[in-house]
Design a protein around this nucleic acid. Structure first.
Lengths: 345, 345
DNA sequence: TTGTACGCGTTATCAG
DNA sequence: CTGATAACGCGTACAA
């Protein structure tokens, strides 16, 4: 069981039982013997303030441990919060962790911070997060949208919050977006399998209510069409949003009378599920093509080729789009950036 | 008074190119034909408000797309922001992504949101994040501290912000903490290797300036001491904070005249580096014991045993500590919760 | 160069 | 049940 210890309390001075209220400009002003306005000026860069007063204020700030109240600052007209809202589906998926990191990397240089929320592919939760973030007056919003629900996202746009969709788009919503060449990547990868001689290729991916899955499935289909190959409907499993579901789906495929000879796994969660199912079934040698790279992909026992792109770039570019809008440098029209997806045989 | 959309209404012109300022209680009140106070009451639950006014306000809110300004709310005395600051070293490390998710999971049920920052093991960046988060008046702070720097963390405590350290502690700082049984886990794992007959075991881990690495190394040493085994100093590599550095360190170990026969890898980054080095050296069969589990650990070609614990639990428990403090239910003294680390042979 | 007055959006308080 | 008033911390506009 869990063990509680008392921490060392040898420092003597016990912290205040009640958090005393934070010092304000008033307090600093009093301590420095100046007016609040002078304090504000010093904090704002100290232009047109006598050096000795700057020193006095600085000392008082130091002494009191004063910090500006960013929330109070932000309610003034024309002020920004310096917050970027990031709504992803699940940070536990390294893909989205990278996306989050890329976004932070870019906006941190502008002194901005990240407000992060996970939707878990739940539209209602996504809506709640969007609303909350708008209520907190984020300067921008990066969203990996779940499904095709537009209302809450449009209301963000209507509220004047720069919005950048990431990885996925939503039809009927004109917003900046950074997406990936899902179709091209899936097409090339599937063609490669066909060129290798496979005719029974399985598709294992997310629900087609997910933008990327729809597009990847379309690429998969087009490769077949170009080769004049029929697709056995049994081989298309597009309903798994996590690796466990993917494992179950793949297990079924392996039990077919005519199982697939190769698998196109449409994202990293599905790839992992596919691999687990193969191992369980004693077939750790399946030919797999995976959309999205993942850590240790090179260490699995499988014959694995990958359609690669960098989710961190998706986050970076989405953040750049937001920053561009904030600087007022962007055209009014929504911009869509499609990043390449590179097939590595 | 000079609200942009007011002007628009008067001129009856096209929708604004520039983001109009958000509607306020005033606007809603005007639209509903009530006072701002009534609007506030309705939003607060509608107690002691006539149903017809509730309806009118609700309609106006809906029509205008009104959202409360959380920043304005939070500057009032006794009000909270509903923000939890989370400072981790790197979300791209799935360990910390899980920690972040666990924290969100717990506080989300209390309606709180996460302000997240990555320190990248850089104290200066950590300090900047702590200061910024305090300036934003977070209700609590979860920090995975880098190194032994105390000043900025103490100042958080001094500011009255509930602070919970996660994974690591800092000496000289009395603060709540959720840590892991690093020593016990490392001890048991190393003993297991010794029991298997290994006498030349390498330690590959973070800098010992990192709390966990110090403790894991101590456990490693104690296992040797108990068995009466000397540790070859050449086999102890405690300076790698990412997998590339770990790979390099392991490569050196493999080139020793008497290379180790087993490796204790002190965290998931080091484990991955160790594995890569072994593969490069054509030795993908090394006996490895790893602290921290990671996705696909079961799919590598290595003989891998793991000292396991759930980083999501670390995040959850740290968040619970914060919530407990916020509810005023906690003893004043700092609490330290040590989660078990289970060895799986 | 410095200070005063005011308002940002919200809600607790108190009067009606 | 409802509304006027005031104040939270800060910074702009203006005065001194």
């Amino acid at each position: 069981m869990y063990r509680y210890h008392d921490a060392m309390t040898e420092t003597g001075a016990t912290p205040p039982l009640r958090p005393h209220s934070a010092p304000t400009v008033q307090d600093v002003a009093a301590a420095a013997g100046v007016s609040p306005m002078t304090v504000s000026r010093v904090l704002g860069g100290g232009v047109n303030v006598r050096p000795e007063k700057i020193a006095a204020v600085t000392a008082a700030v130091e002494k009191l441990g004063y910090r500006r109240n960013e929330n109070a600052r932000s309610i003034r007209p024309g002020q920004r919060t310096g917050l970027l809202g990031v709504i992803i589906t699940n940070v536990a998926n390294p893909y989205y962790a990278q996306l989050q990191l890329g976004a932070e990397e870019v906006v941190a240089s502008a002194g901005m911070r990240l407000l992060v929320g996970n939707s878990g592919e739940d539209v209602e939760r996504e809506r709640a997060l969007v609303d909350d973030f708008i209520g907190r007056h984020v300067d921008g919003l990066i969203v990996v949208p779940t499904g095709e629900h537009v209302a809450h996202l449009s209301s963000a746009v209507a509220a004047g919050v720069p919005l950048a969709l990431a990885s996925r788009q939503v039809s009927g919503l004109e917003a900046d977006a950074v997406i990936v060449d899902d179709h091209g990547g899936a097409l090339e990868a599937t063609q490669h399998l066909i060129d290798e001689g496979h005719t029974r290729i399985a598709y294992v991916g997310n629900t087609t209510s997910v933008f990327t899955s729809r597009r990847r499935l379309a690429g998969f289909r087009e490769a077949h069409a170009r080769a004049g190959l029929e697709i056995d409907a049994q081989l298309v499993r597009a309903a798994q949003n996590d690796s466990d579901a993917a494992r179950a789906a793949m297990s079924e495929l392996l039990r077919l009378d005519a199982p697939p000879t190769a698998i196109f796994a449409a994202n990293n969660r599905n790839t992992i599920g596919v691999m687990r199912a193969c191992i369980e079934a004693g077939a750790p040698t399946a030919r797999i093509v995976a959309f999205d790279d993942f850590e240790l992909s090179d260490m699995t026992p499988f014959d694995l080729s990958i359609v690669d792109h960098d989710p961190r770039d998706v986050g970076r570019e989405a953040a750049r789009m937001i920053l561009t809008r904030l600087r007022g440098e962007a055209e009014p029209a929504a911009r869509v950036l499609e990043l390449p997806a590179r097939f590595r045989a």
